[in-house]
Simulated assay, not measured.
Amino acid sequence: MAFSEIMPFLSLYIGSLGDYSKSQVTMYAGLVYAADFFVSAISAPLWGMIADKKGRKLMLLRASFGTAIAMGLMGFATTVWQLVALRALQGVFAGYISNAQALVASQTPRKHSGAALSTLMTGVTSGMLLGPVIGGILAQLFSIRLTFFITAFLLLLTFVLSWIFVQEKFKPVPAKPASEKSLNPLAAFPKPKLILVLLTSTLIVQFGNISISPIISLYVKELMHNVGPITVVAGIIAALPGISNIFASPRLGRYGDKHGSGKVLIFGYIFATVMYLPQGFVHSVWMLGILRFMIGISDGALFPEIQTLLTKNSPIELTSTVFSWNQSFQAIGNMMGSLLGGWIAGIFNYNAVFISTAMLMLINLAMIWWLVPELRHTKLRPA
């Protein structure tokens, strides 16, 4: 909820920091979004190795406290470049959700990991649902700056709750003898090609999703002809995928555990392609809202099932490592999506971003279909 409070309005906040044209705002928004993800992509593998040696709970405390400080400082920013620097600082401390996923995955029986991770994701999507609505109302009543301070408070609260209530039965990963170490980081995985395809899929899915985030409030503003409570409506539109995701994600996770996560994943790509494409051709916020609501179903099929397949096909002692890689690929997708999403919107228009996202989902589906055909034929056994 803390992160989603400010994400839909970051582009509007940038517009308030200077006298910028439409194309400048979209391109600056892409840069601001990308700064966090660029740094996160570099730092995530390091944090993953430390988590496997020191524990995942420590990483939860590090991430929540560090991002609280960065978020609070963003409320004092007076220039775009200060905002870029603080977003980069946030990237250094990123990783609360990925470490929570690694903690749950490492302490849940593998045959139930799909249901467990999908249930955990309802916390993420519930926050995605509540954050933009609360942030939109606060931005309308007070100011966008206030949402940064509330975000910092929520993250400090998360730090305290994690410190007191999260328990972890952690066993450090023993160091391998030098003679057993391999230069190939995928050598320890029974299905390295599958792991690489899943990590690439994370990048592509996140690329498509995040390319829309910098422009969604601007798209709503255009559809509303700059009249009415734009921040409130933008917050509601941004939250709608979370509503359907809350109901769809646990059910799809249980179905995947019984019938094969690969089948759920393929359904997610087909459904996402069908739902993203018409978003580029809508003429009202009502139609956009309906289609954004449906996107929550595809998100409930894609993100949890990729993580479930990574969990089921990774050695348990490398759980944090593989989730840190997943975070890095996600961060790279975030960075590329932010930059290219703003660039596409600035050169063409907002609708081009939705059309390009639909094409990306189709390309990712083709990649999985041809490179790992076992996903559509069999139920993969846990490693």
Results as ranks from 00 to 15, higher is better:
residue 65 F to T: 02
residue 40 S to F: 07
residue 69 I to S: 06
residue 40 S to E: 08
residue 56 R to F: 06
residue 68 A to Q: 07
residue 79 T to R: 14
residue 82 Q to L: 04
residue 35 A to Y: 10
residue 62 R to F: 12
residue 40 S to D: 11
residue 22 K to G: 07
residue 51 A to S: 15
residue 78 T to W: 12
residue 44 A to G: 09
residue 21 S to I: 06
residue 20 Y to V: 01
residue 16 S to C: 01
residue 54 K to W: 00
residue 77 A to I: 04
residue 15 G to D: 08
residue 52 D to N: 06
residue 43 S to V: 15
residue 77 A to K: 10
residue 39 V to Q: 05
residue 42 I to L: 11
residue 82 Q to Y: 04
residue 18 G to P: 13
residue 47 W to F: 05
residue 23 S to T: 14
residue 16 S to A: 06
residue 31 L to D: 04
residue 14 I to A: 05
residue 82 Q to M: 11
residue 71 M to I: 07
residue 26 T to Q: 12
residue 75 G to Q: 03
residue 45 P to F: 03
residue 43 S to Y: 14
residue 32 V to Y: 12
residue 79 T to V: 08
residue 47 W to S: 04
residue 64 S to F: 05
residue 63 A to R: 12
residue 36 D to L: 14
residue 61 L to Q: 08
residue 74 M to D: 04
residue 20 Y to H: 08
residue 61 L to K: 09
residue 67 T to W: 13
residue 78 T to E: 11
residue 22 K to W: 13
residue 16 S to N: 11
residue 75 G to W: 04
residue 76 F to H: 07
residue 20 Y to N: 07
residue 25 V to Y: 00
residue 68 A to K: 12
residue 31 L to S: 12
residue 17 L to N: 02
residue 14 I to N: 08
residue 16 S to H: 07
residue 15 G to F: 04
residue 80 V to H: 12
residue 52 D to T: 11
residue 78 T to V: 06
residue 22 K to S: 13
residue 27 M to D: 09
residue 42 I to Q: 03
residue 60 L to S: 06
residue 14 I to Q: 03
residue 50 I to R: 01
residue 20 Y to K: 12
residue 42 I to F: 00
residue 37 F to M: 03
residue 18 G to D: 02
residue 33 Y to D: 10
residue 49 M to W: 00
residue 55 G to T: 13
residue 51 A to I: 14
residue 44 A to Y: 12
residue 69 I to V: 15
residue 45 P to S: 03
residue 21 S to Q: 02
residue 50 I to Q: 00
residue 75 G to R: 04
residue 68 A to Y: 03
residue 71 M to K: 05
